[in-house]
Design a protein around this nucleic acid. Sequence first.
DNA 1: TTGAAAGCGCTAACAG
DNA 2: CTGTTAGCGCTTTCAA
Lengths: 355, 355
Amino acid sequence: MSHLVTSFDVASLAGVSQSAVSRSFTPGASISSQTREKVMQAANKLGYQPNAHARSLITGRSRIIGLVVSYLDNLFYPAVLEQLSKRLQLDGFHVLLFVNDHVNSDDMVREILQYKVDGIVLGATTLSSRLAKQCSDAQIPVVLFNRIMAKTHASMGSVRSDNRQGGYEIAKHFLNLKRKKIAYIAGRIDSSTNLDREQGFITGLAENGLQIFATATGNYSYEKATKATYALFNKKRDRPDAVFVASDQMALAVMDTLRHHLKLKVPQDVCVAGFDNVPQASWPAYQLTTYAQPISAMVEATVQLLQNQLLGSATLQDRNVLIPGHLIIRQSSDMRAQLQLHSPTITTCYNPTQH
Amino acid sequence: MSHLVTSFDVASLAGVSQSAVSRSFTPGASISSQTREKVMQAANKLGYQPNAHARSLITGRSRIIGLVVSYLDNLFYPAVLEQLSKRLQLDGFHVLLFVNDHVNSDDMVREILQYKVDGIVLGATTLSSRLAKQCSDAQIPVVLFNRIMAKTHASMGSVRSDNRQGGYEIAKHFLNLKRKKIAYIAGRIDSSTNLDREQGFITGLAENGLQIFATATGNYSYEKATKATYALFNKKRDRPDAVFVASDQMALAVMDTLRHHLKLKVPQDVCVAGFDNVPQASWPAYQLTTYAQPISAMVEATVQLLQNQLLGSATLQDRNVLIPGHLIIRQSSDMRAQLQLHSPTITTCYNPTQH
DNA sequence: TTGAAAGCGCTAACAG
DNA sequence: CTGTTAGCGCTTTCAA
């Protein structure tokens, strides 16, 4: 194993000091272009790249953001991951990934803390409040992505789409379609996203004197949603005529089960609506009505929040960001909706009379 | 901003030396349980966690693995990412994510090098040979995940499933079904996975005196695959009666287009087969015949390869691992196949068949 | 088993 | 603009 190339080596070869090398690699540092040129030539010759860890020791910044997720099969989160990582790279930050299996969570937090990350994004996971607090206590900015917590702590913010509004609009949409027996399939019942979506949905129905006709829990998983669908629809009487499913991932399972196992027609027998607007929702096999979460806006807000907190310039009001989404009506609820070619995150063509 | 807690602080509070603190946090270091106890108490009181960057400076190991991907919408890679990250965490490594947009690749490589990662996994990306070589030259173990390179360099290995065999078995499967006009929809035409799958497919057909009837390119994307399907099937005569699609992601697009836009029946009019066995392939809406890539075996091999190269104990023969996959026959090609409930990616046991 | 001391590779403060 | 110096937080000899 050959000696690792250091700034000392480069300095020697270039005939300058280590400081000159350091400055050459620091944008905006005061250094003459000739010196820099000499340094860069030597650096290239030796294949030198500054050591980010050594740098972080001095600067107190690692330029690493810890991202905690617990699963990536939900179709929505891979897109978030990709966009967040790309966006952070633009600012010279990088994502260190932590997959939370909910069993070694304590170890995981310990490891995050060891890497002295400049910030933490908690997405698609339910890290306990205790652990989230631990991170927050360590002076690290924490952003809850698409979830909120009962007790928010110092240096903790949240970004989410307007889940209540989404549930509300879908309720109104079903009512426009004259549906009366309207069911709800929940995600993780204790998650804030689920609660908000359900609350908005209930509110929308209540404004027209309706209540949720039946409920089941799908836990944000395809398999569980399949079972939930059986529970709600595998009978002749008192079958719902519309169902709002708390995520697209589950809604696809619902459509599959209704059509292929229970031989029901969507939307004629049952209207289905989901939440997220994952790419699959617009595929011809599904054409799923859904409330779109604007990923890039959410990512942007996340990055802003992290950077504000790094600079300590976030007021308390700014700490909880709510991004508006929008309803996309497709054929899983309304036959009149145009069959669309696959067009990710484009707004609806067909816009019915809203409530 | 409060002072960052260091081993010095802990040492002071515990009334021991910094070395003692260090040893307390080093498994297997020679330290008495009483001293350790004192240290741990002080550490807990102060919320101390050792600084991984400072440690890496001494040990020369960052315990970070760089993972380079260019997109995560291909359904197969999120699963890889999740499993790889989980597996590495088991050994105390972590994944630093780099999303390659193919425009700032040079900067990206520079950044990878700055983090002094202990290894690099190149998955779902086509980092140029030049850049891959640059990483390899920096003495960093590189594993090509699901791709190979014309010229392999020192400290570079590869892991892939048996793409040729997969193509071969799908050809044989179509021939069993008495199909004669057999088409191929390619992924990225310059990718090694695509070439291998195509080669195996051609070989299988050739053994029965057949050639590929028609070809189009889908570039591993849903949209391009849709267009490719039109190109091959949007006509009355000389329409293929079977099509092998180089990835499931594209195959789902093909099925959607055949059924919903071209009004053709799958499998009666056209048999479809894909590659990967993503979760969606087993969903009732598709029931896609496919060649399963055993993700966990591939991940395990990747980790082994990285660690072997870290220890410098890899012989040249071990450097290129080929993992066998297996054909899964579903209703997109054969009506007689049983309708399956969704069964997520089952993997074969790890069997390091080398060549 | 323990502590003192040296130094990993780098940047920042200070002179010049 | 440039070099010298100190030290970031840690591990690792080396003595004791």
